Amino acid sequence: MSTSMLRLVWVYPDLLSTYGDRGNLLILSHRAESRGILTESVMVRSDQALPRQADIYLIGGGEDGPQSLAAEKLIADGAVAEAADAGRVVFAVCAGYQILGTSFIASDRECAGLGLLDMRSDRGPSRAVGELAGPVNPALGLPTLTGFENHGGRTHLGPETAALANVSHGIGNDGSTEGAFRGKVVGTYLHGPALARNPALADLLLAWAVGRAPEELPPLDDRWAQQLRQERIAALV
Results as ranks from 00 to 15, higher is better:
L28K: 06
L28T: 01
H30V: 04
A32I: 07
A32M: 02
E33W: 04
E33L: 09
S34M: 06
R35D: 04
G36R: 10
I37H: 03
I37S: 07
E40L: 12
S41R: 14
S41W: 01
V42L: 15
V42G: 08
M43P: 10
V44T: 14
R45E: 14
S46W: 00
D47H: 09
D47S: 11
D47R: 07
A49P: 09
A49S: 13
L50P: 04
L50V: 08
P51H: 01
R52P: 07
R52F: 10
Q53P: 00
I56K: 00
I56M: 01
G60D: 10
G62P: 01
E63H: 06
D64Y: 08
G65K: 15
G65L: 15
G65P: 05
Q67A: 09
S68R: 13
S68Q: 13
A71G: 04
A71V: 00
A71S: 15
E72P: 05
E72S: 15
K73M: 10
K73A: 11
A79C: 10
V80I: 15
A81L: 12
A81E: 11
A83F: 05
A83K: 08
A84Q: 10
D85A: 15
A86K: 11
G87E: 08
R88F: 02
V90H: 04
V90Q: 02
V93R: 09
V93C: 14
C94T: 01
A95P: 05
A95W: 00
A95I: 10
L100A: 11
G101P: 00
G101V: 04
G101C: 06
T102P: 01
S103E: 15
I105L: 13
S107F: 07
D108Y: 14
E110N: 15
C111G: 07
C111I: 12
A112D: 07
A112Q: 13
L114M: 15
L114S: 09
G115V: 06
L116Y: 11
L116P: 07
D118W: 05
M119Y: 01
R120K: 15
S121Q: 02
D122S: 14
R123N: 13
G124I: 06
G124C: 08
S126C: 11
A128Y: 03
A128Q: 08
V129Q: 10
V129C: 08
V129F: 12
L132C: 05
A133C: 04
A133G: 02
A133F: 06
V136N: 04
N137A: 14
N137V: 01
P138V: 01
A139K: 13
A139S: 14
A139V: 08
L140F: 03
G141Y: 00
L142T: 08
P143M: 08
T144V: 11
T144H: 05
L145Y: 06
G147T: 13
F148P: 00
E149R: 13
N150K: 08
H151R: 11
H151V: 05
H151Y: 09
H151I: 08
H156Q: 14
G158Q: 03
T161G: 00
A163T: 01
A165G: 00
V167N: 00
V167S: 02
V167I: 03
V167F: 06
G170W: 06
G170A: 04
